[in-house]
Amino acid sequence: MTRITPLAKPFPPEFDARMKALMRGAEPLVLFTTLATNERAWTKFSGGSLLDKGSPLSMRQREIVIDRTTAKCGNEYEWGVHIAGFAPHVGMDAAQIYATVHGVADDPVWSPEEAVLIATVDALLGHKKLTEAEWSALKAHYDDPQALEIVQLVGFYHGVSLICGALDLPLETNAARFPAAKGD
């Protein structure tokens, strides 16, 4: 049972048009249909999204940050949606997907630039800021617009994780599931 009943079809025209463009023929995510029950919540949420084409990060960099953030927040819902929808398109292999959930920054599956992304997510979620050393490591690979986008992605998807957890959203049927830890 959902905590807030999602919108049902027929959707309001503006939301329906947005979903047709965003979802490219697939059914809207329950996260979207639930938030859209409140126009203000939906407008603020969709206005804060960083999935547009104007990102200073590559799609792969963006997805590594999102996947690690949602995994560290225990948000299987959003992690699974992103892994299913984007991992194949950004060249993430099974070892990298596993490492977004169970790995560490210095796992050999990551390039030095990607390891910094993992370390930055972990630092921000772990102690809510970056030390001078952590900021310097980030800036060794990313310019100011990229660094700011990385921090914003972590913040936004931390918020998405809180929303998904509070609403106890059911997992999407076509989404990935967290991999079991090795040895389980």
Rank of each mutant, 00 (worst) to 15 (best):
R40L: 13
Q146C: 14
S49N: 10
H89W: 07
C73T: 06
T100F: 11
A119H: 03
A137H: 14
T43A: 15
H102I: 05
P112K: 11
E39W: 14
A71V: 04
M1Q: 13
K20L: 12
E149K: 08
K139P: 12
Y142P: 06
E78L: 03
G47M: 05
P6Y: 10
F45G: 01
G165I: 04
L57T: 02
D107H: 06
D106A: 09
K44H: 12
K20C: 08
S136T: 11
T70L: 03
D16C: 07
R18C: 01
A21T: 14
M92W: 10
D52Y: 03
P88H: 13
G85Q: 07
R18Q: 10
R3C: 07
Y142Q: 02
E149D: 14
Y98H: 10
V109S: 08
W110K: 01
Y157G: 02
L169Y: 04
E134K: 08
C164S: 11
W135F: 12
D144P: 12
E113H: 12
L138I: 01
A36W: 00
A94R: 13
F156W: 10
D67T: 07
G25C: 07
A84I: 04
D144I: 08
A119G: 04
G80N: 03
Y157W: 07
L171G: 06
C164M: 07
T69I: 00
A99I: 05
M1A: 15
V154Y: 03
T37N: 08
L7R: 09
G74M: 02
F45Y: 15
I118R: 00
I97T: 05
P170N: 08
V121M: 04
A105V: 02
K9L: 15
L57C: 08
A94F: 01
M23V: 09
R60N: 09
G103A: 07
Q61C: 05
E63C: 02
E76G: 06
V30S: 12
G155S: 13
V116W: 01
G165D: 01
P88F: 15
Y98C: 02
V81L: 08
E113V: 03
R62C: 05
Q96Y: 11
F156R: 10
G155R: 03
L29W: 01
H102C: 03
A166T: 14
H82T: 00
E114H: 10
P179S: 11
R24E: 13
T69R: 00
G103I: 04
D184T: 15
M1L: 14
H141L: 02
E39Y: 11
I83M: 12
A133L: 10
L169M: 04
T37H: 08
H82W: 07
T70V: 09
A94D: 06
A123P: 09
P56V: 00
S55Q: 09
Q152F: 12
T37W: 08
T69H: 02
E39R: 15
N38I: 12
A36N: 00
H102A: 03
V154Q: 06
I97E: 02
H102G: 05
D168Y: 06
A140V: 01
H141G: 04
A115L: 01
K139F: 13
S111E: 13
L50W: 06
